[in-house]
Design a protein around this nucleic acid. Structure first.
Lengths: 124, 124, 124, 124
DNA sequence: GTGGTCTAGACCACT
DNA sequence: GTGGTCTAGACCACC
């Protein structure tokens, strides 16, 4: 798998790494039990700090995407994609309800909110 | 101003009060320095607990809509409605970006998110 | 973590709790995702009312330090301490500008304002 | 008395007017019962809207600096400068206490806060 | 078990 | 009179 980082963005490096690895797992580019590059190796290849890589890996461990095996390395965890999607959709619903409340306070219609959403998609 | 609460809704009483007072201020039914009903008075009039009224008032103080003067009462604060709307829209944009990120992780299309939003509107 | 409250101070109990928990998070004694004592537990341990504990926790949720998960408990939120300090300093600057305006209206010199600040420090 | 407004500032025009008139009264450039320029006159002289002038005058009436006499105009009110100073100093003390609390949360020393104050003075 | 909401009192300090 | 704080219960829904 190919990982890369950009210095020309406000997104922290470890977040960039997390996003890519998460995506790779969800798109099945990385499969269960696949080993991730070692912290030192990735640090060298991308010319970034060891701590930064460690931070990304640790976060992903916390999120349940990967597991750490002491002395061996980090490996892709078994993911229940269905459950993952359900949780994500639930989170999105919650955010939408918050938005709905905020929107009603400033009299924004559904169409205006959708237009804002399209804008936010184009930005990224 | 007329305030009322309904027991036949899932919306907490203090949220109902907050919504009504917030709207009254935004619609200029309540003007700067207007005094709100005292906590005890409103508690009696609506047959609800003192703490419930206070909870609503305190939240509105936190949101900057009203101010409290110990020993005198609660009063409508000076609000820059334009600034308020700008901040609100900005907050909505941020939430939409978070949603966009989450949605891309589970391959939800714009249309599917829109449909979820419509659902969340219908619930309330 | 050890929490305690004193009845021999004018500082409200919930403010004492908030201060201690906030400091613990900022000093990294409490880390992301750490669980706080349950409302009932802390209420019993400190011999204070449930509502008082909840008031402290809810305020900290509002400030973004912790999050609540219904049915599970309160947990330390992900905090960007740098950003937090920047925002705090900005807020202080704004207050100082307000003070500056007020001070100029009553011809208070910088030294007199400084002296008032020292007094306010001694009170607490 | 000379009044002027600048378009090259973020401060609303009516705030600029209020500041100048308040200052004039406190510096005794305007004395009790002095008549202010009529709303229409000032609006023409400064090439600003009637509503803007009215807004400034009304705010000053609210603050107790001037009074409106229907059909005659606006006049400087009797000001208890001592009381005014006391109230202002009290307000400043409150703001300083808020600052003190914020400062202690981010470990800012008294000296650093004072330095920020000096900066805010230089900006204006 | 947990938090979320609500009630019905109480006492204090300020105006 | 007012708000500010606090207690000691209660019921619900979620996990």
């Amino acid at each position: 798998m190919e990982l890369y980082v950009s210095m020309h963005t406000s997104l922290p490096i470890y977040e960039q790494l997390k996003d890519q690895i998460r995506q790779a797992i969800l798109k099945k580019d990385l499969l269960e039990n696949d080993q991730l590059p070692s912290v030192r190796r990735l640090s060298k290849d991308l010319s970034i700090g060891i701590v930064t890589v460690k931070r990304a890996y640790d976060d992903l461990v916390n999120e349940g995407f990967i597991i750490s095996q002491a002395g061996k390395g980090y490996f892709v965890n078994k993911i229940d994609i269905k459950r993952f999607k359900t949780l994500h959709t639930k989170k999105i619903m919650e955010l939408l309800e918050t938005i709905h409340k905020l929107a009603s306070e400033v009299d924004l219609t559904k169409e205006e909110v959708m237009s804002l959403y399209t804008q936010s998609k184009e930005k990224s």
